[in-house]
């Protein structure tokens, strides 16, 4: 298993760079990942998405689809794309410390 250093700690990552143990995640890690992805500051709106993704992952073992995010997280699709430009589900999962979502929608 590969590891990397982020926000001053060493975490395990998969081949795509996503954290393999979401319990090792901290807000400091989220902020460091966000900066790497070109998001300078994580706002409350970002954290609504991040918290929802982590909760979904804990309950279902996989991140939510964009459709589910739109309907249930409180952040709609349009805003989601603004918050995480260039691939919301992928980027939000990375920042939330969960594996890359597997769905096609």
């Amino acid at each position: 298993m590969a590891t990397r250093e982020i926000a001053g700690v060493t975490v395990e990552i998969d081949e795509n760079g996503y954290m393999t143990d979401h319990t090792a995640w901290t807000k400091a890690i989220a902020e460091a990942f966000a900066k790497e992805e070109g998001i300078d500051e994580l706002t409350d709106r970002h954290y609504i998405v991040i918290d929802f993704m982590r909760k979904e992952y804990e309950e279902n073992g996989t991140g939510p689809s964009i459709r589910k995010l739109n309907k249930q997280s409180g952040v709609n699709t349009k805003e989601l794309y603004q918050l995480f430009p260039g691939g919301p589900a992928k980027k939000a999962a990375l920042i939330a410390g969960i594996p890359k979502p597997q769905g096609c929608v």
Partner: peptide, 18 residues
């Protein structure tokens, strides 16, 4: 079951996604 929306909702989703 696969979380794929009906066509009308899918068009909205695509539009919202840009």
């Amino acid at each position: 079951k696969l979380d794929v929306p009906p066509v009308d909702e899918f068009l909205e989703m695509c539009d919202d996604a840009g």
